[in-house]
Nucleic acid binder design. Structure first.
Lengths: 248, 248
DNA sequence: CTGCTGCTGTACGATATCGTACATGTAACT
DNA sequence: AGTTACATGTACGATATCGTACAGCAGCAG
């Protein structure tokens, strides 16, 4: 299925790209490119996970379902990661939902295959476990940030995290959706985003968001963005987590 | 050091207790009982972790340091777990601080010894990774809960989580400290706790908290408590995570 | 062009929480 | 008993955010 793709590929996923050639070669035949469509649900809470996804373009949210019907975002997964932490950690499923927020592509793989590959390849296993640590740190930061920081700072942080995982400076994003991600009213986003736009840091129209002043946005965000990014740099090297370093 | 302790011990730590005799026997000589003193810092952010702790009594908070000097709690570790996720996941350190909130005791162990033990014992490794999953879920829930739920519900949840990890129905806890854990004003805790006390669910005086109506407290808490507890039950069996089941 | 639909701007009073200050109560120490 | 330190109760106006409603505006279908 994936065999038509040339072997030394331009892999965008940082986890796969970080593997030594031997490890990647073993994994490659089992990886299938798939599209990630907007709002597609990759994993549902409590449902056994059959497939894992290494995003190449676009990104997903990890969502904790709430009693009142909607859900709270607890983390992002993009080209720096992989969905399906439970598979890595030996569980069948999760209490979280994983949903595509920015459409793109991924390399997918059977959960059983990944389990087997981890069993047989300590390098792969080590890398994936280090990613789990990175992701845990991101979620922990989100917990602290949600409790302490205000809408405007959290919005700036969220836009930066999305931008890190987006292909260019523009991606689909409505105020309505941002409000669900940050757990605030839609009108609250309009106000906070309006201020960022007035300051020239972002611009948006008709459901598309564009980042126009990254440094400005960074200074508007709380420290939580920087802390997560530095953790990412520790795992992937100095230029990971910043933009413009996809290909190496 | 630990050799004076009889071999078939009354181990309270659920992770250690869940190990098959062979796995535990290999670990046992390396475990040293230590006291956990109130406010003792077990791990500091960015500092390499030399020792891990399997709490037996009492519990610890995982805290994310904030720019303004204080810190936000993102999770608890008690008799159901172990500190030092980074060691399990192959990192040297964490961005989080681990601090003793309720004094007690733990079985401690060198980080290197634990790494070696995990390498040599798949059962141990599997169990610890499943615990990482459990803890990740708890932190993710905290992220969602911090963003969406109100002080009164979060206080009830926090008291229940503490109670699960406490020895009896009473433990040391001031409003001041609760306010730091939940990230709200001290006066806000006094109001929320006062309401719970008036409803007969808790009572407190002079820095000691007593749980007097657990079912009532459970109905006051948000769904987040139940979700985390059920995840715990999946790992440890049906009675884990509830109280009164320490000894079997 | 017309009419829809979805995104964004804005307004309103209501509410939760804030930051701060001060009063009261309790226990330990002298 | 007097003092001190700390825990708790309570008050105040200020602020962030809520829930809701409605108006403007762009893009698309007919």
């Amino acid at each position: 299925m994936a065999s038509s793709i040339p072997f030394t590929p331009s892999i965008r996923n940082r986890l796969l790209a970080a593997l030594p050639p031997g490890s990647l070669a073993k994994l490659w035949p089992q990886l299938t490119p798939v599209d990630l469509e907007l709002r597609q649900v990759l994993h549902r809470p409590e449902e056994p996970i059959a497939t894992v996804y290494f995003p190449e373009r676009g990104w997903c949210s990890m969502l904790a379902p709430l009693e009142d019907g909607d859900s709270g975002e607890v983390g992002l997964v993009g080209w720096e990661g992989v969905t399906a932490l439970p598979v890595i950690l030996g569980e069948a499923f999760d209490d979280l939902e994983v949903m595509v927020q920015c459409p793109g592509t991924a390399l997918s793989m059977g959960a059983d295959s990944l389990r087997a590959a981890m069993e047989g390849d300590p390098v792969l296993r080590t890398l994936l476990l280090r990613y789990v640590m990175l992701h845990h740190g991101q979620v922990a930061r989100t917990a602290a940030c949600n409790g302490r920081h205000h809408t405007d700072q959290r919005l700036a942080r969220w836009l930066l995290m999305s931008h890190d995982r987006a292909e260019g400076d523009e991606f689909p994003m409505t105020h309505e959706f941002l409000s669900m991600m940050l757990g605030v009213r839609r009108a609250g986003i309009t106000i906070a985003a309006g201020a960022l736009q007035k300051a020239g840091m972002i611009s948006y129209r008709g459901g598309r968001m564009r980042i126009t002043d990254r440094p400005g946005l960074e200074s508007s965000a709380c420290e939580c963005y920087g802390i997560s990014r530095r953790a990412s740099e520790r795992l992937f090297g100095l230029n990971a987590g910043t933009r413009g370093e996809y290909w190496r």
